[in-house]
């Protein structure tokens, strides 16, 4: 098998697994959690396009995520758009906002870029919570965000909605895989490794950076919209910087720069949070401890660690 066909096979396998789980195996109380894992997996896969592939450390992705949520809520509830059109618009909105932020912020690199995106994210947080009340519902948020209805099928139940998120997830994962393997993806990765050389080869590096950042924003917008639909709710609280921190943690936890790392990271993060909080009131500290240990002792995240173990097992 070539790399590409293997990738497609694995993706389809993951999606198929989700579908099977949705229809049969999973206990009803785990369904919402699985939905959430897939939504955050979309977010993290998109985040890694900017972070892992292009090396752009953003602390403002929560803003694109939040914009997606509000776009979906407003377009479906007020403008009465069909769900899929609103979902697409949420993605595009996230992408456009990311392109605008990237266009301005990408004159900076490294930690300064991170700080600009952080400031920008917080700006959006305050705007959404305190100033754009007519559009965001202020601190109370917007409740009653709908679930999709497609081909006469109502996705109001978490079980059916898991099908929906699985399909969206599979499509976006495949797109991400294609993008990484494409000449465009190669150039972007090249820019991360050696921007000067790529510049000298005649590529306009900043355009590539802005483009990949916009794609990453598109993923965030879609994920935000799905999350709002999943929880029937959009609130400014998801725009706070901690959401950007969460997606960064997921990506690094799973393994930045790999296709499946962010997916594994999102799953590990959400499951850990859910399981630990059932076990003990002290779960917050435990989560922090686990995260610190993984970061120190497994540099490539869970995927990197697993890879090393496999290699050791096969001398």
């Amino acid at each position: 098998m070539t790399g590409r066909t293997r990738l497609i096979a694995v993706t389809l396998l993951v999606a198929a697994l989700a579908v099977v789980l949705a229809l049969t195996g999973v206990g009803a109380e785990r369904l919402l959690l699985l939905n959430l894992v897939l939504v955050y997996a979309v977010f993290a896969v998109g985040y890694d396009l900017a972070f892992g592939v292009a090396g752009l450390l953003s602390l403002g992705h929560a803003a694109f995520f939040g914009l997606g949520a509000y776009l979906l809520a407003n377009l479906t509830l007020r403008a009465h758009w069909p769900f899929e059109a609103a979902l697409l618009a949420a993605g595009i909105g996230g992408g456009v906002l990311a392109a605008a932020v990237g266009g301005v912020a990408l004159r900076l690199t490294g930690i300064f870029f991170a700080l600009v995106t952080l400031a920008f994210g917080q700006l959006c947080f305050i705007l959404a919570g305190n100033h754009l009340r007519a559009w965001t519902g202020g601190l109370d948020g917007i409740s009653g965000v709908p679930r999709p209805v497609l081909f006469g099928l109502d996705f109001a139940s978490d079980r059916l909605f898991l099908l929906y998120t699985a399909v969206v997830f599979a499509i976006l994962l495949l797109v991400a895989a294609r993008l990484r393997a494409s000449p465009f993806g190669q150039v972007v990765a090249g820019i991360r490794l050696n921007p000067v050389r790529i510049e000298q080869l005649g590529w306009r590096t900043n355009r590539f950076r802005v483009a990949i950042f916009a794609v990453s924003g598109f993923y965030a917008g879609i994920a935000g919209a799905l999350q709002a639909s999943l929880l029937f709710f959009a609130s400014p609280q998801i725009i706070e910087w901690t959401t950007s921190g969460d997606v960064l943690i997921m990506t690094v936890l799973g393994g930045a720069g790999t296709l499946f790392g962010p997916v594994v990271g999102a799953a590990a993060f959400e499951l850990l949070r859910d399981e630990l909080s059932r076990l003990t009131d002290r779960w917050y500290g435990l989560l922090g401890l686990v995260f610190v240990l993984v970061t120190i002792f497994a540099p490539g995240g869970i995927m990197g660690g697993a890879g090393r173990l496999l290699r050791r097992a096969r001398p």
């Binding site: 991170a114 921190g245 960064l248 943690i249 690094v252 002290r282 917050y284 500290g285 435990l286 989560l287 922090g288 401890l289 995260f291 610190v292 970061t295 120190i296």
Partner: peptide, 14 residues
């Protein structure tokens, strides 16, 4: 920087 995220949670719990 990431590690300091984890440290926040641990200190708060402490």
């Amino acid at each position: 920087m990431l590690l300091t995220f984890g440290v926040i949670l641990i200190l708060e719990e402490g």
